[in-house]
């Protein structure tokens, strides 16, 4: 049951949860260095880039 619950929340691979956590860390770091005005306009696309990288990594690793 616990194994099924873990699979339900985190999925079948470690790549997706690790990628989401890394993406969040990366965008928070970028947000800290960018001027607030630039961040509010472009920050979303930084997150899109991280999400795409996570997807690509998870497809490559598949475990």
């Amino acid at each position: 049951m616990l194994k099924s619950l873990r699979k339900l929340v985190l999925g079948e691979t470690w790549a997706v949860p690790a990628g989401v956590a890394a993406s969040l860390g990366a965008v928070i770091a970028v947000r800290a260095v960018l001027p607030p005005d630039l961040w509010s306009r472009a920050g979303g696309f930084v997150l899109v880039g991280c999400v795409v990288a996570t997807l690509a990594l998870s497809l490559r690793l598949r475990r």
């Binding site: 969040l24 965008v27 928070i28 947000r31 607030p36 961040w39 509010s40 306009r41 920050g43 979303g44 997150l47 899109v48 999400v51 795409v52």
Partner: peptide, 28 residues
Amino acid sequence: FGTFFAAEGLRVEWPFGDVALLYLATIY
């Protein structure tokens, strides 16, 4: 939806507001 909400929580203002959901879905 996840990208949209997470970025809004980090105080991002998406170009064209809620329409961002459409172009994000198109990109993915």
